[in-house]
């Protein structure tokens, strides 16, 4: 539980941070909730840690032209407790509230969490359903990618070498939109065995728009397009939810077999869809 030696660097601006991160032996440190345990177990051994917490401007949460802009260093607690997020994008606040425990939520950040891309983390399901945009800064400038492009594979994202997640942008929900995040908790780690985020627009029960994000089920979070299409074409929630596992190569471990995970995905998808529908009314 003792890390390899490393240098600790504290940049005071984004350009300085990006300059330091150009070194392939450097690793960005935000809340440290994943990186530090990995270092203590000696599963990760960066030679340099670039602590981003001294970089100004990365913790803000604001509304701008119909979207919420969440700074990469906003903590899970900042997000779950933000009146703005709770009012305008409740799905993100819900997902944040499901993460770990109070201590983790006080330290962990949205940028750190998504850049780590744990396949069982909570945010990815919500960000997939929200069709969030993630801003990635590099020495050459900043680019924006969609959540679907961002999450590439297990612990793998669209963030390139030397790049940093700087902002997450999510839509301000329109009236008539209902959302819900439903999660089956792994009792030891608090991660999701399966987590499903549902985001629906419905008029008198008819679903006009459905976005379903899934985490924990397989190696990477994903949008359940099949379920979305079924919902948008009038299938009932139960029948649509059943399609969530179609064609999925489910994870299997000591906490849940693939067969049970697939079953849970269907159960939690139905729960999330029903709850989102109820919220849309």
């Amino acid at each position: 539980m003792i890390a390899h030696p490393f240098d600790y660097l504290t940049p005071k601006s984004l350009p300085e941070a990006l300059l330091l991160l150009a070194d392939p032996d450097a690793k960005a440190l935000a809340g440290g909730m994943s990186l530090i345990p990995m270092m203590k177990l000696r599963l990760a051994a960066p030679a340099k840690l670039v602590d981003l917490r001294g970089v100004p401007g990365l913790t803000s949460i604001s509304e701008e032209s119909g979207r919420l802009k969440i700074g990469a260093l906003a903590t899970h607690f900042d997000i779950e407790s933000s009146r703005l997020v709770r009012a305008k994008c409740p799905l993100l606040a819900m997902a944040a509230a499901h993460i770990g425990d109070v201590q983790v939520r006080n330290m962990g950040t949205i940028g750190g969490s998504i850049a780590h891309a744990d396949p069982a983390a909570d945010y990815p399901a919500a960000l997939q359903a929200l069709e969030a945009t993630i801003s990635i800064a590099g020495v050459g400038g900043t680019r924006a990618v969609s959540a679907a492009e961002f999450f590439v594979d297990t612990f793998t994202t669209a963030v390139g070498p030397g790049e940093l997640v700087v902002e997450v942008s999510v839509p301000v929900e329109a009236a008539g939109t209902g959302t819900s995040y439903q999660k089956c908790l792994q009792p030891a780690s608090g991660f999701a065995i399966v987590g499903v985020a549902a985001r629906l627009q419905a008029v008198s029960g008819n679903i006009s728009m459905a976005r379903i994000g899934v985490t924990g089920l397989s190696g990477c979070s994903f949008r359940a397009n099949g379920v979305e299409a079924l919902l948008e074409s009038g299938s009932d929630p139960q029948a649509a939810a059943a399609a969530i596992a179609n064609g999925i190569d489910a994870n299997s471990d000591i906490h849940a077999s693939a067969e049970y995970r697939l079953h849970l995905a269907r159960v939690y998808a139905a729960k999330a869809i029903r709850a989102a529908l109820a919220a849309a009314r």
Partner: peptide
């Protein structure tokens, strides 16, 4: 580790 061994919270 406690990531895999669940004591009740």
């Amino acid at each position: 580790e406690f990531m895999d061994y669940a004591i009740p919270k």
